[in-house]
Amino acid sequence: MTNISIRIWLVPLALLAIAIALPFVVPKYYVQFASKALLLGMLAMALNLVVGYGGLVSLCHGAFFGIGGYALAMVTPKYDPVSLWWSFPFAVALAGFAALIIGALALRTRGVYFIMVTLAFGEMLFFLFHDNQFAGGSDGAYINNKPEIAIAGRVLLDLDKPLAFYFVVLACLVATIALLTMLVRSPFGHALAAARDNERRARSLGFPIFRLRLIAFVISGAIAGVAGYFSAAQFGFIAPQTLGWHVSATVLVMVLIGGLRSVVGPLVGALVLLGLEEVLKASTEYWKLAEGLIVIAIVLFLPNGVRHLLTAALGERKDESPQDVKAVAKVEHA
């Protein structure tokens, strides 16, 4: 048993060790790039809770991401940093609240109508911030000072340092993975997947489908807000475009590349897509065309996502005891 649990933990721990060592071996530019990629990976994992596990294709997660960022922009004073202690929970709560309102209305629809309603809400929020001057309008809003943690004037955490920023993001990412893994394995997660697989049966068994999906939607929106908060902090700027469908769709592509049926798949998808962009931008003027073709190829030839390449390469499933196979199967369909 201990032998098996060591094996299960080995790969994630090795990956975590690499992630921790990374900023000490690569140039500063790549540390910032890694922070950005991990934040988008966090957004993609949040989205996958509703898309992959809930079976609800949302096209407004860019809006929750953007609200997290705008919340930070609007509470940050012009010449001073804002305290992370309260601005962070405020931003996350605001994103979660937006998800509660949008979810409560959108979850009354199904299938393609759900997609259209979420798309409409995302665009409404885009125009709300774009056409009104309260948050900078179409020019966007600046965050001149990154949030900090300070006690009695002493700065304990300064997010201006790329290294500190990277580790805060990494910590949030690990917490997100832990939270989502717990959710997916819990009775809640199994009920959510049951509602996806057969809504009628789940309903007649007595599961409160609407409440179930709304909770998942709010958790997902709140995590998207976490990613948006730090993303805005990183760039010191937030534009209304962040709220729009383009971001939402890009993140959905990350989810599809990474695979719908695992917690970390979308993170892998985000890293693959952003890494691909980085490489292609440097090598060809027509990088968007090349990127599009490669994405199509991945979706065609790896319908379960690139994460399954890793699984196959590492031989995760081989020579496990039957119980573990069962556990894997449960998580897979969960």
């Binding site: 199994h190 057969n198 049966r201 068994l205 599961f207």
Partner: peptide, 24 residues
């Protein structure tokens, strides 16, 4: 639930009627 095991199908039914069906 076609993609789930027989056990999981019945377990979901029992879970729906447990004290905390949506326990996180």
């Amino acid at each position: 639930f076609q993609q789930s095991t027989v056990y999981e199908n019945a377990r979901l039914a029992a879970q729906a009627h447990s004290k905390a069906p949506l326990k996180i």
